[in-house]
Each structure stands twice: as structure tokens, then as C-alpha cells.
Design a protein around this nucleic acid. Structure first.
Lengths: 224, 224
DNA sequence: GGTTCCATGACAGTTGTGTGACAAATCAGG
DNA sequence: CCTGATTTGTCACACAACTGTCATGGAACC
């Protein structure tokens, strides 16, 4: 069955849309924020995405841009604003269609069908490690936290990739030195420093890390 | 250059559309009847078709059905009628989008671009890449920015194609040297220089690139 | 309480990148 | 074949960003 993800902060509208879509034979589910929308689509990809533009927190434009980094799902904007600038900006950001509220469900359904008929084309998805709200894309050379790109340096990035490839496993300082730096020798404290810097960037509370944790006497571990 | 066929019986509207499209950087030509439209598209296929619904003789719905028998070109209906039944019927007949007259040319252009990005499904795979407002057509040997052709040199073009083929992925200087120049060896700084020159042409603010970005220590990446 | 292990801030040296200038190479048109 | 224009590759400099070391203080362990 065709699955549709609806991102709309107004509860009444969202529920009405979901109901109408189910009536039309879709499996439909919704979230209220763009952040949830990103997470949801990564965890359980839908065949179509409907998104409002005015959302609390991350807005619809930014949502589209972020999703489009590694997902080619057809995106339809459902907005109350009938403004050329918005329409152009949304399509440029990567949306495939733009309809103005209130929208006839039959029209929406027909537009979704037309889009699916076109099919997907484009980039093969990038391989990601997902650790909770953290995403590491070795291909894209990017680290995201709750959808937001976090700038990390090359060494930090390599270190994080190494840890992400072995989620839940302890890696000793020596192992990390070996794999990230290529050293066989050298001061192991170097690892500490970089772990510390990484924590500043990817942890909510760097002093009490939830993902990048220390195992005293053993080394470091990345966990979900 | 992207060619657009316009089928519209009202001379004034047709000419206005053609003019506006050319202004946007398209090669545009028009006919007044569906019969002419079919003939023309078979003789000299356009990349997009705009069609009115109310036409003398064969109407727009029938035109779409007939054209769709052997052509997967993106079709956009441009109609004065804002009626759900018409919209659904047109999309069901095989149209890809439906806009209501009068239409902002910028919106129309953005919708055409979005459609081309989706590409054709039945015919040869699309080889042109669309990255935001940027279009790269390896076949046509052209780069467009917001519809306007940007003159780039051969090397810049190859570099851009290489990056465009891997949107969202980092390519190291060595990889680029290898793929664009065919070197196995050589000074990697060469890549920097050409990236810099490319940025001057395709970026809004070359000093703060939005698409052709540097990933320090990793290489370059083209992103939407 | 002593010991070991770890976190963190500061800092100087190093590396990586952007850019302008320039000469060699290539191309277009006569 | 010649000439002028364009394109290409090299270089050097400046600047910003990154890295590794060290010292200090704090936390965990016995």
C-alpha cells in the first residue's frame, strides 16, 4: 500500500488530511514538526511526503532541503499561502508540487498519482549510520544532529566514523590511534582531546555524554 | 537548450507565454490546435509541453491521451478553469501538472524545472542534473543557472559534471584529478583553482558557496 | 587518602584553502 | 602559417582553521 507522511502542525488539518487520505486508500501517518518528519522518514520511509511551509521550529523549506540531501521521495507542499515567491522557493528547494489550502482531496490524490507515475530518479542514497538523533554520512562527509549539520574537522570526522562503524563496541585508545591516525606509537592522550572536542559538538551535555561514553580503563564507545 | 511547445488557441495568450518563456531562457514555440500540436511534437520533440484544455477541434484531454501513447514528455496543463473535475481528469489523462491562468512565469518556470528534475520514466534515463537553481546537461554541454545559460570552459564543465553525478557526496581532489584530468599523479591544487573559477560562475556569492562547498581535509561536494 | 585515569583550556606550530598573477598551451579566424 | 584571444596549469602569498602538546584540576577506583 502506498504510504504518505504528512507534516502539518495544525492538529485539525493534519487529522482531516490523514482521514481523507486513508479514505482514498493510502496508509497515512502524520507528525507536527519538521524535525520529527526528518526522523520519521529516515526510520520508515513513506512513498510520498506532504508538508506545510509554516511550521514551528524548522520550517518547510528547510525541511525539504534537508530531506533532499539523501531522499528522492516525491514531496508535495500543502500551504495556505498562494504566493509566487513561496511556490518558486519551495520548488527550488526540491519540492515536486505545490497546492494551496484548502485542497480538494481528489485533486491531491490525482497529483500524488501523477508524481508516482513519474517515478524516482536521481542519486543513490548515501550510506548513513544513525545513532539516536545523530547521523553520520561517510559519503556526504557530514554529521547531523537532529537534522542540523554539525561542522566537524577531518580528524573528528574520521574518529566519529570509526566509532560509528562499531556502535556499542568499546574501542581502546590504541585501536583508535591505529585506525584514525595510523600511528602504532604515540601519546594516547591525543585521543582524549579529540573525543572531548567531538563531545562539545555532538552531545547535548558534553560533561555527561549520552552517546560518546568513556569506559574507564578500556577506551571509548559510541552508543544509541 | 530546453525546448517548450505551447498549445493555446488564443493568440494573445500564446504569444505572451512564448515571450515570457524565452525571457526565462527557453526555446519556445507554439501552435493553436491540438492536431498541430501532435504533428509538431512528433516531428520535433520538445522537452516540455504546455497545453490549454479548451481548444477548437480536439480538446486538451484528448490531446494528452493521444500524445501519451508514445511520448513521455512532461505535460503541464495551463487552463483558465479552476475545477477539481478538470484537474483530476487532466492528470488522469496523463498530464503531470495543472496550473490556473493567469500564471506567474516564475512559478511556471519553477514547475517545469521540477518536472524535468523528476525526469522521464520510460525513455532513456535522464542525464541532466538539477541542483537547486542549477542545471547541468552533459548531453547538451550546457550549464544553466535559473534558466540562463552560463558559459563555462571545457575543464570546468567536466569538473561540474563529475560533481553533479555524485550530488551530495564528497569527492577528494585525487578522485577529481583522476576522473576529470585522467592524472594519477600531479598537483592537487589544480583542482582548487578550477573549483574557484567555477564558483565565480555558478555561485551567488562565490566567497560563501551554497552548492559547491569545501569539506576541509576531505575534498569538494556539490549539494542542493 | 592515595593513586590512577580522564576532562579541559590554552597555545604555538602546522596544515589546508582561496586567490591573484603570470606564462605556457590551445584555439579560432583569417 | 600567423596572430590575438581564451583557456589552462603553476606558483606564491595570506589567512583561517586545525592539530598535537602540555599543565592543571577533577573524578573514579581501591
Amino acid at each position: 500500500m502506498t504510504a504518505v507522511l504528512v507534516i502539518e502542525d495544525d492538529d485539525r488539518i493534519r487529522l482531516a488530511l490523514l482521514l481523507a487520505l486513508e479514505e482514498e486508500g493510502y496508509r497515512a501517518y502524520g507528525v507536527a514538526t519538521a524535525e520529527e518528519g526528518l526522523q520519521r522518514q529516515r526510520a520508515d520511509p513513506a512513498d510520498n511526503v506532504l508538508v506545510d511551509l509554516m511550521l514551528p521550529g524548522m520550517d518547510g523549506f528547510e525541511y525539504i532541503r534537508q530531506l533532499r540531501r539523501d531522499d528522492d521521495v516525491p514531496i508535495v507542499v500543502v500551504s495556505a499561502r498562494d504566493d509566487t515567491h513561496d511556490i518558486v522557493a519551495a520548488l527550488e528547494a526540491g519540492a515536486d508540487d505545490y497546492v494551496v489550502k484548502p485542497v480538494a482531496i481528489k485533486e491531491l490524490s490525482a497529483r500524488l498519482r501523477a508524481l508516482r507515475r513519474r517515478g524516482r530518479v536521481g542519486t543513490t542514497p548515501v550510506s548513513n549510520h544513525i545513532i539516536g538523533e545523530l547521523e553520520v554520512s561517510p559519503d556526504a562527509g557530514e554529521v547531523r544532529r537532529a537534522g542540523q549539520v554539525v561542522p566537524v574537522t577531518r580528524t573528528e570526522f574520521r574518529l566519529l566514523c570509526e566509532l560509528a562503524e562499531h556502535v556499542g563496541r568499546v574501542l581502546s585508545r590504541r585501536q583508535l590511534l591505529q585506525r584514525v591516525w595510523g600511528y602504532d606509537t604515540g601519546d594516547e592522550r591525543l585521543v582524549d582531546v579529540h573525543v572531548g572536542r567531538l563531545r562539545q559538538k555532538i552531545e547535548d551535555d558534553p560533561a555527561n555524554p549520552r552517546h560518546l561514553v568513556t569506559l574507564r580503563g578500556l577506551g571509548y564507545k559510541l552508543q544509541r
